[in-house]
Design a protein around this nucleic acid. Structure first.
Lengths: 206, 206
DNA sequence: TTCAAACTCCGAACAATGTCAGGTCAACCG
DNA sequence: CGGTTGACCTGACATTGTTCGGAGTTTGAA
C-alpha cells in the first residue's frame, strides 16, 4: 500500500497539507456557510495563494468531496460509539438511542448535515469513492434498524423520513434548540408500534 | 388602492413586465436549477440587457422574493382546492387528503419546494411582506390539521416533521417516482393513532 | 404645443468569483 | 552533479451580480 517509488517525506507532507486545507475549509464553512467557501479566503487561511491549492485539489468540488468523505466517516464512528456506550438490551431503548444519536449527529453540525444529506451545492456530486463510503455507512445504519425490527424497505423508508424530517425541522426552524429533538422518543414509540403492525413475523425479506 | 398619482398606463405596463420577468425566472430556474438563475440569461429571455432588469427589481434576491410570494400564494390555492374537491367527512379521509395534497404540491415542482421550504439560496431572506404571507398560509395549514384533531404544538410539530420528511426523501432520492408517496396513508394512520393517544380530550390548548 | 420630469433601456465598467498558463525555486533521485 | 518533480507564485481570463452615467421615450402640466 505504501513505499511508492516517490519520496516518503514528500508524500507525508503532502497529505498533511491536504488535511490542513480540509480543516481550514471546515472552519470557513462553519463561519460563512457551505456556499461561502472562497478559494482566496481558504488560501489565506493556510498561508498560500488560492491558485496554489490546485496543487492539492483539482477543483473546489474536490475539496467538498474530501469533506463529504470525512463527514461520513465521522458519522460511522459516531453511530458506533452511540451503541457501544449504552448496551440497552430492550428494543425500545435501542431504537431510541439510535434515533437520538442520528439526530444529535446531524444537529450538532448543521453545515456538515447540509453537505452530507442535502443537495445544496449547485453542481457538486460526490466522487464514486466517497459515494461508496456513504452507501456503506448507510448500509450499517440500515442493519442497526434491522436489529430493531425494521426489515422491509417500506418500513425503513418511513423511519428515515421521520428521522430526517425531525432533523430538518430542528435545524431550519429551531437551530440550537430542542423543540423537535424532544419528539424523538415519542416518534420512535409511534414508529415501533406501526412497524409491529405492518411487519408480518414470517417473512423476513421484502 | 389604485389611481396613484402616477400614470396608469405606465404602472400597468410596469407590472406586466415584472410578471414577465418572474415568469421567465421560473422557466430558467426549472431548466438550470434554483441557483442557476443568471441575470444575463434572464435579460436575454425577456428581451433586454441584464442591467435593465434593475429598473424592475432592485436585486436578484428581490426576484427570488417575488417568486417566493407567488409560490406561497399557489400553495394556499392548491390546498384550498384539495379540500373543496373531495368533501370526505370522516377524519381519516380528510387527514389523508390533506397530507397527500401537501406532498403532491411539493413534489410537483421540486424547485419551487426548494425555494419555499428549504434554505438553499446563500443569502436570500424573504422580505417581511412575503414572509407575512408565508406565515398566514402556514396558519391556514395549521387550522386544517386542527380540524383533524392536531391541536397542541408538539403534535403539530410531529406531523410537519413527518410530512416534510416524506417530501424531502421523495424529492431527493426518488424524483419523479412515488416510493415515499406510497407511504402517506400509512403515515397518516400512524400519526392519527399517536395523536389520539397523546391528546387528552379535556385540554384544547398547549 | 411645449417643456421638464420621470421612466426605460443601454454600454461601459467594477469587484468578486473559480480556474488556467507559465515561470521560479527548492527538494529529490540517480 | 544534472535532471526531474513538485510547491508555490504572478498574471490573466471568463463569468458572476451590480453601479454609473447617458441616451431616447413617455407623461403630466403649463
Amino acid at each position: 500500500m505504501s513505499g511508492q517509488p516517490n519520496s516518503d517525506r514528500r508524500t507525508v507532507r503532502r497529505q498533511e497539507t491536504r488535511r490542513e486545507i480540509v480543516g481550514a475549509s471546515w472552519d470557513l464553512v462553519r463561519e460563512h456557510g457551505l456556499a461561502g467557501l472562497a478559494m482566496r479566503d481558504l488560501g489565506e487561511r493556510v498561508g498560500m495563494r488560492a491558485q496554489s491549492i490546485y496543487s492539492y485539489f483539482a477543483s473546489k468540488h474536490e475539496i467538498y468531496d474530501a469533506m463529504f468523505l470525512e463527514g461520513y466517516q465521522a458519522f460511522a464512528i459516531w453511530m458506533a460509539d452511540a451503541v457501544d456506550g449504552d448496551a440497552a438490551p430492550d428494543p425500545t431503548g435501542a431504537a431510541r438511542a439510535t434515533a437520538r444519536a442520528f439526530v444529535e449527529f446531524c444537529t450538532s453540525d448543521p453545515v456538515r448535515y447540509q453537505l452530507l444529506f442535502q443537495r445544496t451545492i449547485p453542481d457538486f456530486v460526490p466522487s464514486p469513492d466517497s459515494y461508496a463510503v456513504a452507501v456503506g455507512v448507510y448500509a450499517e445504519f440500515r442493519e442497526r434498524l434491522s436489529a430493531i425490527g425494521v426489515r422491509d424497505q417500506a418500513t425503513l423508508d418511513l423511519w428515515t423520513a421521520m428521522l430526517t424530517g425531525i432533523t430538518d425541522q430542528q435545524i431550519s426552524n429551531d437551530p440550537g434548540g430542542d423543540r423537535w429533538k424532544q419528539l424523538i422518543d415519542r416518534a420512535v414509540d409511534m414508529l415501533l408500534a406501526d412497524t409491529r403492525t405492518h411487519t408480518n413475523p414470517e417473512s423476513e425479506k421484502a
